[in-house]
Amino acid sequence: MKILIIEDQKELADSIETFISQDGYVCDITNNFSEAKENINLNDYDCAIVDIMLPDGSGLDAIELLKKIQPKCGVIVVSAKNSLDDKITGLNLGADDYITKPFHLSELNARIKSVIRRRNFDGNNLITINELTIDMDTREVKVSERTIDLTRKEFDILLFFISNKKRVITKEAIIEHIWGDDSNTFGNLDFVYTHIKNLRKKLSEAGAKDYINSVYGVGYKFSVE
């Protein structure tokens, strides 16, 4: 899988690359519009992460070009402005998703996975990890052919873990992913723990390995060999 990162903040682009390349993604980083044009003309990408504000142009133009030359490439718009205009224009140009800076790397990673999954959909939309099978269409989870009954939030948490497997995900990132941007202000974040506890219980009762580990007080990690 090849990812194009168009982001003028080099340090942020490096962070994104480090975080997502763990899954074997190959990243090209460009810090401005002209380089981005070159890259789009030269290479094929599965997904592009495009910052709207570039020193020598608008990321929106890059999206237009990308959609013309590589219609199969997924596009995620990144904007520092929490501006609806950018979002609407970006999505109208054919972008698949929109994320506002600053974001959690785990959130961006989950979005990339989701975009690629949707783009490469070829009949069956299944994710398989050892004994776990997740059907994205029916939102059904099976452990060795045995269906387990998860609530909507438990399913979303599991999917978020799987998208970020082998990485530490902070509680904040989970909360924002499941409950929305505004939900991080509850002083007590124990409600995440309740959901994860239930999820682990359901998985292990069905005979799955306990993949979800707590990492000190920071967050959780879905460990899989």
Binding site: E11, S15, A80, P102, H104, L105, V168, V218, G219
Partner: peptide, 16 residues
């Protein structure tokens, strides 16, 4: 926002 974005990403990497 830009600075926070960078710092946030670096902390997330540190946690890995």
């Amino acid at each position: 926002q830009t600075l926070v974005a960078i710092i946030k990403s670096k902390f997330e990497l540190l946690l890995q």
